[in-house]
Structure formats: C-alpha cells, structure tokens
C-alpha cells in the first residue's frame, strides 16, 4: 500500500536524520537513501533539460562523477531516465548489451568504479525535474522492495528540494531566478565559444563536451580554462566522440 510505503520511507528518513541530530532535508534523505536502497552512493541533480542540469548533492565522489559523465557524454542510464521519464536500472553495467547501448558511458563509468547504476527520474506532475542516481561499486540488481522504496524516496526528495528552494526564496527575499548555478562556467564558456567558433550556443556546448571527452577531463575543468582564456578551441579542431 502506498501510504504504508510512504510512512515507511518517511519514518526511515526521520530516524536516520535524528540519529545524526540533523533535520530531514533533501541531502539527509540522500544520505539515508544509501542504506535504504542498499547502494554505495546517491546523487541528486535538478534539471530543466538534458543540457541544463545542476548537481545538488552527491554522497560520494563516484556519484558526482557519474553526473559529470551524464553531462559530458549525453548518454547512459541517467540520460535515458531523464529522456523517457521512467527509471532505468542497470544492476550490472559491464555486459555486452550495455556496452552496445551506451558505448561511451559504460567504459567511463566502469573506469571510475561504478558497476551498477540505478537512475530514477524526479517528476512533478508532467514536469521532469531531474534525477536521483544510485550506484553500486559491485554489480547486483535492486530487490523489488528497494525499487519501490527508492521510487518513493525520489518523490520525497523532490518535495524536500522544492520546499528548500522556496524557503531560500522566502527567507532571502530573492527570486528563484537568482539561484546560483553550479555549472555557471560551463554556460559562460559555451557563450564564449559560440562567438569564437562562429556557431550556435548549442553547437558550442557540443564542441566543449567533445573537447572534454577527448582530453578525458570533466567539462567544468575545460570550461574554466576557456573562461580564464587558457584554452581557445579552433574551428577546425573538432574531436568527434562518436
């Protein structure tokens, strides 16, 4: 029953936060989610489109880097979950079908130590708001119980996050539009490259990502180089990730 499931998850979150002397928040809920779902790490991203995402929290480094991979490569279970609006669960990444399905993502994810990735879309009605991404450093599928719990957890985390964002807005008397972006440099670099290369901003982001991929660096690092004018991409230099 769904209300029992919700009560179970909320009760779990309450107990977990209290044991740390903390209030329940979107972040504490991610932390609690690690044990609730039996995973290694949990990561939370707020999104308004595949190219417009803000990592809000990651319980560990692997989680943070998985989000980086989603943003750099534009493929993988996380990208698919956001696109389709349904959870995409890969209990074992390192299989032939998965290598064929996500030829860039799978080797990169294995490289950083992820063996299983479970991507749950965050939805508010019809609006896709982001992703809750869980990972394991050892392969293994989620049980039905863990899947159901995580689905509810994702809904609760979105409620918490929206509530927190609204609260910040009320307390600081600011507009949500002033919300600081954590990937600001990526978007700044995108704008700069569009002028330097004479292309659209969409194309400029593709170039930025391709460069990051070819250099095996996070997009944000490359973007910082562009913004600091340490790096200038040339129109002809266009490594192709595909």
């Amino acid at each position: 029953m769904s209300s029992e499931r919700l009560a179970k998850v909320l009760g779990y979150l309450a107990a977990d936060a209290a044991s740390h002397g903390a209030e329940v928040s979107s972040e504490s809920a991610c932390d609690a989610g690690v044990r609730l779902a039996g995973v290694t790490g949990v990561q939370l991203t707020l999104m308004s489109g595949p190219d417009r995402g803000e990592s809000r929290y990651a319980t560990d480094e692997v989680g943070a880097r998985l989000e980086e991979l989603r943003f750099t490569l534009g493929e993988g279970p996380c990208a698919d979950a956001f696109r389709t609006g349904v959870p995409v669960l890969a209990g074992e990444l390192d299989t032939g079908p998965n290598h064929r399905r996500w030829p860039l993502f799978v080797p990169a994810a294995l490289e950083i130590g992820a063996r299983a990735v479970f991507a749950f879309p965050l939805r508010s009605g019809a609006i896709r708001m982001g992703l809750l991404v869980l990972h394991r450093t050892r392969p293994g599928a989620m049980t039905h119980e863990q899947m159901s719990d995580t689905q509810v957890l994702a809904d609760v985390i979105l409620s918490l996050l929206l509530d927190e964002l609204t609260r910040v807005q009320v307390e600081n008397n600011t507009l949500l539009a002033d919300m600081p972006l954590r990937r600001a440099e990526v978007h700044q670099a995108t704008g700069m490259l569009s002028v330097q290369l004479g292309v659209s901003v969409e194309e400029a982001l593709v170039r930025l990502r391709a460069h990051a991929f070819a250099e095996e660096r996070p997009v944000i690092d490359v973007a910082r180089d562009v913004v600091a004018r340490r790096l200038r991409l040339t129109p002809e230099a266009r490594p192709d990730p595909a």
Partner: peptide, 8 residues
Amino acid sequence: VQNALDSG
C-alpha cells in the same frame, strides 16, 4: 525552478 534554471 525550471524557469530559474533556464534563465540562469
């Protein structure tokens, strides 16, 4: 929130 992300 989505509008804020977009305009940001």
